[in-house]
Design a protein around this nucleic acid. Structure first.
Lengths: 129, 129
DNA sequence: CGCCTGCTTCGATGAACTTCTAATCAACAG
DNA sequence: CTGTTGATTAGAAGTTCATCGAAGCAGGCG
């Protein structure tokens, strides 16, 4: 692949050290932060990509062959490949060719960062409707 | 408003009882679940809406006047109004007119559900890059 | 009542996105 | 080497989306 994967998630922003409160409800997002984070959510803001991510995450061994993913949808292989590319460019998944087949696995750190961003400021708020 | 707000989040799926693991990494999302969840992420998959949500969530008192939101962007009032409508139809925020101004506040339950969905299966995974 | 301000709706336009078919690349079997 | 299968890329068609200007609605003030 000639185009390089964008380093949307780097060491600059920690994931595990989210501590108590979500960034989103602590202080307003800056324009650049929002511009950096929006593509991550856009990557999973599609039914097909959401299911792809779920299928890859749930698969035993933590990785899934593209052929298994393609079989789960009523879509053509190029379309699945396109969606996988979107997820990969967002940094949500990674892939490797191993012989005939290509395997994909998820990058939990990016998902964890997204989850922490929109997560409740305190556990008490989670149940408040 | 003639169009009714879609009940994307209802009592059918609990939020606080997510227990240990995120739905996404426990078992694959069904087609209908994905179709139901994707619009929620699509609603926040935009830099402007992400900042709007953040501004509303961070504002003291928990609610914000539209005039304050409009002032924070280089966009025309109709555009801000459009984004607020998208967030409202997704169930992420709610609003009320009080005299001259309209106030918006966030619905933490929907955000919490989304966070739980993509959240790490176990705390140990969060730090794994 | 008449006007003004705050916010929303309407209609249009240009960009982005999803999906397809056709073609190409990569690995393996005969 | 040649053919076959798995996966991606290229290009195109149809749809959705973000944004704007103009117009409309709601509430307060003189």
């Amino acid at each position: 692949m000639s185009k390089q994967v964008l380093p949307i998630l780097d060491a600059g922003m920690d994931v595990s050290g989210a501590a108590c409160c979500a960034p989103l409800v602590c202080e307003p997002l800056s324009e650049s932060e929002a511009a950096e984070l929006a593509p991550l959510f856009k990557a999973i803001a599609d039914p097909v990509r959401l299911r792809l991510l779920s299928l890859i995450a749930c698969h035993e061994g933590g990785e899934t062959c593209v052929c298994d993913l393609t079989a789960a949808f009523d879509l053509t292989p190029p379309t699945i490949s396109h969606h996988l590319k979107v997820l990969k460019q967002a940094g949500l998944i990674d892939s490797e060719r191993r012989g005939t087949w290509v395997y994909y696995w998820i990058n939990p750190a990016v998902l964890a960062r997204m989850s922490a961003l929109i997560g409740p400021a305190s556990p008490a708020l989670a149940g408040t409707a």
